[in-house]
């Protein structure tokens, strides 16, 4: 505030700055609203997936419990040794409203059939088989969930960032500028009044000289 030179050009400058800030604020607000709409739809998807995930996990846990109890820990462990496997995950990126988000896609579905899991079906109980199947399905959901969740997180961060900017403009930049404008105007007014007064004084002096001609 101190460096503000109270001049008319400065005043004009500040005024255009205010206008710019308000424009920016509007734009940012629009962006925020758009992001929010996107965020909400991603949020719905995330919620849906997270319920799916929860259900898949509890299903898998249950069938693991049954397999462990009916076939025994030992059998489950033995079969687990045979089912070595890799899960291929591809990660690329894309942009949503200028926000870069990672895209996680599964290379090959981690869900295998009983015949490709690595053991021979003739020697493995269907309970263990189905437990393996359910856990592989979880993996499937987890990959989809990882994708949607990072997207949600990025969007959330972006919304927060935009919000902070809007707030900064709204609460700090614009009021500061307005204050400066007010100061400049006050100073200018003051100066104008001083000038007026001085002019009046000068005029009075001139008039008093005219009324006493001998003095001139």
């Amino acid at each position: 505030m101190e460096e503000v030179r109270p001049t008319r050009s400065e005043l004009l400058e500040r005024r255009s700055q205010i206008q710019l800030a308000e424009q920016g604020m509007d734009l940012l607000k629009q962006k925020r609203d758009a992001l929010l709409i996107e965020f909400m739809s991603v949020m719905d998807e995330t919620l849906r997936l997270s319920t799916t995930l929860q259900r898949a996990v509890s299903d898998a846990q249950y069938s693991l419990a049954v397999a462990k109890s009916v076939d025994g820990n030992v059998s489950v462990r033995s079969v687990a040794m045979a089912t070595k496997g890799d899960v291929v995950v591809d990660m690329t990126g894309t942009k949503i409203m200028g926000v870069s988000v990672p895209v996680v896609t599964k290379g090959e579905s981690p869900v295998r059939s009983s015949f490709t899991r690595g053991y021979s079906i003739t020697g493995v109980s269907s309970r263990i088989d189905e437990t393996a199947d359910r856990f592989e399905r979880i993996l499937d959901v987890i990959i989809a969930y990882a994708d949607i969740e990072t997207r949600l997180k990025r969007l959330g961060e972006e919304i927060q960032k935009t919000n902070r900017r809007v707030n900064a403009l709204e609460q700090i930049t614009v009021p500061a500028l307005r204050e400066q404008v007010a100061y400049i105007r006050m100073t200018l007014d003051e100066r104008a009044r001083e000038d007026l007064f001085r002019l009046k004084k000068v005029k009075k002096k001139i008039e008093s000289r005219k009324s006493v001609p001998g003095a001139a």
Binding site: V74, S75, R77, V79, M81, A82, Y119
Partner: peptide, 24 residues
Amino acid sequence: FNIKSVIRGKHVHLSADEIEDGLY
């Protein structure tokens, strides 16, 4: 079952102790 366990264990390079958990 046991022979398979041992071979499976070797398949994924488990130690003898770990394989023993899969024997009956």
